[in-house]
Design a protein around this nucleic acid. Sequence first.
DNA 1: TAAAAGTGTTTATCATATAAACAGTATATC
DNA 2: GATATACTGTTTATATGATAAACACTTTTA
Lengths: 265, 265
Amino acid sequence: MSSEEMTPEEAAKMLPAGAALGWGLVKPPQRGPKREMSIDQIVAKAIEIADQDGLAAVSMNRIASALGFTAMSLYRYIPSKDDLLILMQDAVCDIPLPPERPRHEWRESMREYVLGSVAIFRRHPWYGDMPILGIPITPNHLRMVEWGLQPLRDMPLDDFEKMSIVLLLSGYARNYGMLQRDIDRAVQAGSSEEEFSGINYSAALRTLVKPEPYPNLYPIVMSGVYSGENEAENTVGDDLEFGLERMLDGIEQFLNRKISGGANR
Amino acid sequence: MSSEEMTPEEAAKMLPAGAALGWGLVKPPQRGPKREMSIDQIVAKAIEIADQDGLAAVSMNRIASALGFTAMSLYRYIPSKDDLLILMQDAVCDIPLPPERPRHEWRESMREYVLGSVAIFRRHPWYGDMPILGIPITPNHLRMVEWGLQPLRDMPLDDFEKMSIVLLLSGYARNYGMLQRDIDRAVQAGSSEEEFSGINYSAALRTLVKPEPYPNLYPIVMSGVYSGENEAENTVGDDLEFGLERMLDGIEQFLNRKISGGANR
DNA sequence: TAAAAGTGTTTATCATATAAACAGTATATC
DNA sequence: GATATACTGTTTATATGATAAACACTTTTA
């Protein structure tokens, strides 16, 4: 409601420290000894550790040690671990947007957006483990939202509808990204030897899932489809693509109804 | 591949302890002193604490203290905290399925399923904070999958297609449930006094999001739609419903194509 | 009537985040 | 140029977590 101006410095105070850092709103100190590290360096190392050993392995100690310093030294750069996590999240969203396409290729644009989002989850398996604290507020993360909005630019949609669609697609990307990550993990684990012992629960499920309280699930467990065994015979091909095309179809239908002017209920 | 029989006892060994407990595959001990607690009691208390103070507040100590025991006593019932989390997750999925509807009301059935799933996230805000470890393998959680499959029973779909659709809908429910939870949290926080200070970042975003790298996002931030300010004027009404109807439209179109026998590409 | 299995407790260990105090260093102002 | 100031990275300490090990006591089984 208030439309007063606001300086970036004031804005910084209203954001979590991690977000303020991400926006470059915290000026590096002028006096004192020269810094031996940098925020970027710390974040990069944290991401490296998370990529390799998971989010749980990211401790202040581990990061600092890997850089040759003590845990406490990190607090001279980043006020808390939560802020570090915000910075990590934002950092992996720093990917270049593809060139804009003509309006009629909006479906392909959206596919690009969703696939681009999913790629983050695959590249950084821990990304999906990060708690969602709220709407995106960091620069690169917001650029992902910008990406999602781009294909909708010249569509006959108001702001609410555009956001709803981006929400739908980004949510889908998140879901699918996490699924994909789980599959990657299972493949990694399975390729060793425990494929049949611990990770793969299908044998146990076949014993436990009875037609009794699970009439619809039962045949799917028995056929091995539930636990993703015979992927070779998968008629759907790619779950990502299947769901995505369904959603794009639904969106297209909504657009058509809007354009032809009918009530959209 | 192997289609040998398997006893429930053998199945139990292949599952995480929490899942085995959930299936009732761990027989209570025969000898020794009478137990003063029960697994159900522990899980119920853990859920109570999580509902009230969030998942982070759930510590073995806190649960045990609330029950009048020491932290270590819990380990006589549940082997690890991870297993407790599995049990919590399964417990809140213990909701009765609604009566089955005739085939032609499949859209309404799916709405019920999605809304039912979303309700779990609202009732138990911590539910969305639980890491997804893999496909559902606990009894109540699997009953939710069963619920999602139910409307598809007599549809001309193979197992892969059915699972893809349930995956799509359950993912959507999860996403929307977490969004709804975030809104609930913001409302709770905002109703006190910090509505304008910390939680609400819209003022800061208006300063930081420039037309420059954010041409499409910029107007949406400026109009206040991005941060969900003027919900009163929201044309979409309910984000949940909007996205859900788009998805159902997409699914319906897929079904129609399938029925009319055409190639679905 | 043991022996065995299991109870809840106490004590101890090992991470973890981070506060506080410290000795040294670069800059800004006089 | 001197010195106060704002830093630096480190050391030390605290608090909070999960959980292992050893304990004394209690039921049931043989």
